[in-house]
Simulated scan of single mutants.
Amino acid sequence: MYRVLVPVDDDVERALAQADYVAGLPDAAESVEAVLLFVFTGDTSDLPEDVQQFKSATRVQSVRRARERLEEAGVSVQVRDDSGDTTEDILEDAEEFDADAIVLGGRKRSPAGKAIFGSVTQSVILNTDRPVVVTGGGGD
């Protein structure tokens, strides 16, 4: 089984591009297992307990759409969510899941924008020894 970690953000087009890439892998329906990961950022620990129950990746549209696309292609899919530092969570989940590859959704950003705001994609690429695929998607 070929395992891929697919960290998605809230951009539906990027998530669909990532799902399309995974679905297009050779013999995907029979030999690929995908984990969709959504990382909640920001401090939500002060939310009331009854609201915390709704903080789930399955409620995020980009995750739902990517999952549907993969399931339509016959790819085995599971959804996970995490909270905290996006890069660290991606790297930890890739290790825990023993991912054969990480499929990220890239976006256009200027070199200055990367320097000022950081780049999750760049950080993941520089801090893993696993293969990383960066798909396009979205109009940004």
Rank of each mutant, 00 (worst) to 15 (best):
P48C: 09
S56D: 13
S45I: 13
D46L: 15
I116E: 05
S76R: 14
N127K: 00
V133M: 06
V6S: 01
E13D: 11
D50K: 07
V12S: 08
R107K: 14
V32F: 05
L16T: 12
G106S: 09
L37D: 01
G138Y: 04
V79H: 08
E96Y: 08
G24S: 13
A15C: 05
G137P: 01
A23T: 13
V75Y: 12
P7E: 08
A17I: 15
V8D: 03
R65T: 07
A34S: 14
V39G: 00
L16D: 08
S110P: 04
E71W: 05
Q53F: 10
I125N: 02
V60Y: 05
D82P: 05
R64M: 15
F117M: 03
Q18P: 13
Q18A: 14
V133L: 00
A34N: 11
E88H: 02
R64H: 07
F54N: 09
D93S: 08
T41S: 13
V60L: 03
D85W: 05
V134Y: 03
G136I: 05
E72Y: 04
V4W: 04
R59V: 12
E88V: 01
R14E: 00
R14N: 01
V120Y: 02
T86G: 10
F97M: 13
I125G: 04
A115M: 12
V75I: 15
T121N: 02
N127Q: 01
G113A: 05
S76D: 11
D43L: 14
L5P: 02
V60C: 00
D85H: 09
D140W: 10
K114G: 03
T58V: 02
A19M: 12
T87W: 02
V124T: 11
T44Y: 14
S56C: 14
N127R: 05
R67P: 12
D11E: 09
V120M: 00
V22K: 09
D10Q: 08
D11K: 02
D89K: 13
G113I: 00
V60E: 03
L37N: 06
G105R: 00
V133E: 01
I116R: 07
D129T: 09
G24P: 08
V103R: 02
I116Y: 04
E88D: 11
V39K: 06
G24W: 11
D50H: 12
V8W: 11
P111S: 10
E13N: 06
A15Q: 09
A66H: 02
L126P: 01
E96Q: 13
L37V: 01
Q122L: 10
D129E: 13
E49S: 12
A73V: 09
L104P: 07
Y21Q: 05
K55V: 15
V22S: 03
T86D: 10
S83H: 14
P26E: 03
K55G: 01
S31G: 06
E72D: 15
I125A: 06
R14K: 15
V4M: 02
A101M: 13
Y2S: 05
Q18Y: 00
D27Q: 11
A66C: 11
E68K: 11
G136Q: 14
Q78R: 13
A29R: 06
I102M: 15
L70E: 09
F54I: 08
R80S: 10
R69G: 05
D9K: 10
